[in-house]
Amino acid sequence: MSIRSLAFGLFLTTLLPSAPAAPAVPRAEYKIVTASKTGTYIQIGRDLAKWVAEPAGIALEVLESKGSAENIQRMRFEPDVKLALVQSDVYQAFLDEAKAGNAEAGNIIRPLRLVLPLYDEEIYFVVRADSPLNAIHEIRDRKIGVGPLGSGTALTSRTLYQLMFGQPMSPANAQYLSNEEALARLTVDKSIDVAVIVAGQPAKLFSEMKPEARKFIKLLKLDEAAPETALAKKTYFAATVRAGSYANWLTADVPTLSVKAYLATYDYGLQATVGNLSRFAESLCANFDELQANGHPKWQQVRLELPALGQGWRYFPPMERRLRACIAARAAGASARASRAEVRSPPAPVARVCTEQELVLGICRR
Rank of each mutant, 00 (worst) to 15 (best):
S2G: 15
I3W: 09
S5T: 14
L6Q: 10
A7K: 13
T14P: 02
S18H: 05
A19Y: 11
P20Y: 11
A22G: 07
A24Q: 10
V25P: 00
P26W: 03
E29T: 07
E29S: 10
I32G: 04
G39D: 04
G45W: 00
G45P: 03
R46S: 11
A53G: 09
G57C: 04
S65P: 04
S65A: 13
G67W: 00
S68L: 02
R76F: 07
V86Q: 02
D89H: 14
Y91E: 08
D96L: 04
D96W: 04
E97R: 12
K99S: 09
A100Q: 12
G101A: 10
G101Q: 11
E104F: 13
G106E: 06
I109P: 04
R110C: 08
R110N: 15
P111W: 11
L112A: 12
V115S: 05
P117G: 10
E121N: 15
E122Y: 00
Y124L: 04
L133S: 06
N134Q: 13
H137C: 14
K143F: 14
I144M: 11
I144A: 06
V146E: 02
V146W: 02
P148R: 05
P148Y: 04
G152D: 03
R158S: 06
T159V: 11
Y161W: 10
G166S: 11
G166M: 10
Q167Y: 12
P168V: 03
Y176W: 05
S178K: 01
S178V: 01
E180N: 06
E181H: 07
A182C: 07
A184V: 14
A184C: 03
R185H: 14
L186R: 01
T187N: 03
I192Q: 01
V196M: 02
F206L: 09
M209P: 01
P211M: 05
R214N: 02
K215L: 13
I217S: 00
K218I: 01
K221E: 13
D223H: 05
D223A: 09
P227M: 04
T229H: 04
L231G: 03
A232V: 00
Y236N: 03
Y236F: 15
A238S: 13
A243I: 07
Y246E: 00
W249V: 09
W249T: 07
L250C: 09
L250P: 05
D253N: 15
A261P: 00
A264T: 08
Y266W: 12
Y266Q: 12
N287Y: 11
F288V: 15
E290C: 06
L291A: 10
Q292H: 08
G295K: 03
V302E: 11
P307I: 12
A308E: 07
A308R: 14
Q311A: 14
R314F: 03
P317Q: 07
M319E: 06
A329L: 05
A331Y: 02
A334I: 07
S345A: 13
V350M: 06
R352V: 15
R352T: 15
V353M: 08
E358P: 01
I363G: 10
C364M: 05
